[in-house]
Computed example of a mutant assay.
Amino acid sequence: MAYLRVSTEQQGGSSLGLEAQRNYIAQAAAAKGWQVLGEFMDTMSGTIAPTQRPECLKAIRAAEDAGALLVVAKLDRLSRDVEHIAAMVKRVPFKVATMPDADAFQLHIYAALAQQEREFIAGRTKDALQRLKSRAASGDAEAQAKIDRRSAGRAMAHSRGPLAATRAAQVKANLYAESVDSIFKAALFDGMKSLREVANWLNMKGYKTPRGGAFTPIAVSRTMKRLGLSFNT
Rank of each mutant, 00 (worst) to 15 (best):
W34A: 05
A168N: 13
M88V: 01
T51S: 12
C56M: 15
A2L: 02
L163S: 10
A28L: 02
N203A: 09
L4I: 01
T233P: 00
Q116F: 11
E178Y: 03
Y3G: 00
R118F: 07
P100K: 03
T209S: 10
Q170F: 12
E9F: 13
I48F: 09
T216F: 09
G33F: 06
G17I: 07
A137T: 10
G38E: 08
L113C: 09
D181F: 02
A177R: 03
Q11T: 01
A49R: 08
I147Q: 14
F120N: 12
S45K: 15
K185F: 00
Q144W: 12
Q170N: 15
S15Q: 11
M41P: 02
T51M: 15
T233E: 06
V36Q: 07
Q10V: 00
M192T: 14
G139A: 05
L132V: 10
V82C: 11
S221C: 06
K90F: 00
M41Q: 14
E142H: 11
V180F: 06
D140M: 12
K133A: 09
N203R: 02
Y176L: 01
A30M: 08
Q130I: 03
R222L: 14
F94E: 07
L202D: 12
L163T: 08
M1E: 13
R167L: 04
Y110C: 12
D81M: 09
I25N: 01
E64F: 10
A143S: 07
S79C: 04
